[in-house]
């Protein structure tokens, strides 16, 4: 219980930090914390395998990519910069309104007792991890993945292939624009 609230606080705080950080590098750090906290939360929900995947794939691979691109784009002497704001100021409160409307989602889902799904009693508390040992384990996960959900699993192979081919084709571009004299800010 305490662990949940602690983790929830960490998740929310890091998420807010991601969105509000001044520099993208800080955002990456915030995201790292967010993912780590989420991974622990997955453990409490008896999703052991996912917790590991979350750390390896997200923190290990995706965030490294982000860091790499940040480094690439802000290489040289130029600071990582942002141009003048073109979106009218008046839209900012409007967007806040939109986000608040999204809050309707929150209330409906969180405050409604029937949100627990069908196979479980409404609002039934979840036990601590370990009660259902088989559920969520790597063996359990793998078995389902390669039998019941074989088709989605095969499909992911194509997704990764598209990513590889697509990125090679995109990034292999010869940029015909002659390098302009870069202005310093």
């Amino acid at each position: 219980m305490i662990l949940f609230w602690f983790l929830a606080l960490a998740v929310v705080a890091s998420a807010v930090f991601v969105v509000t950080a001044k520099r993208p590098v800080y955002s990456v750090v915030g995201l790292l914390a967010n993912f780590a906290a989420l991974a622990i939360m997955y453990l409490t929900l008896s999703a052991e395998f996912l917790a590991v995947i979350q750390i390896i794939v997200y923190s290990g691979a995706i965030l490294m990519l982000f860091l790499f691109v940040i480094a690439l784009l802000s290489s040289g002497v130029r600071p990582f910069s942002v141009g003048p704001d073109r979106l009218p100021r008046v839209l900012v409160p409007l967007s806040l309104f939109g986000i608040v409307a999204l809050g309707g989602l929150l209330f409906v889902i969180a405050l409604n007792p029937s949100a627990a799904g069908t196979s479980n009693a409404s609002g039934a508390p979840l036990g601590p991890p370990g009660q259902a040992n088989v559920f969520g384990s790597v063996a359990d996960f793998g078995k389902v993945l390669f039998t019941t959900y074989l088709l989605p699993f095969e499909a992911t192979a194509f997704i990764l292939m598209i990513a590889v081919i697509g990125v090679i084709a995109l990034a292999g571009d010869v940029d015909p624009i002659p390098p302009k004299a870069r202005r310093r800010k």
Binding site: L87, L91, G98, A101
Partner: peptide, 18 residues
């Protein structure tokens, strides 16, 4: 601005479905 438009549309949807 486009993202905002979509969020607005989504908000309208969400309110309706709520």
């Amino acid at each position: 601005a486009y993202a905002l438009t979509i969020v607005f549309g989504a908000a309208a949807f969400i309110v309706y479905y709520a």
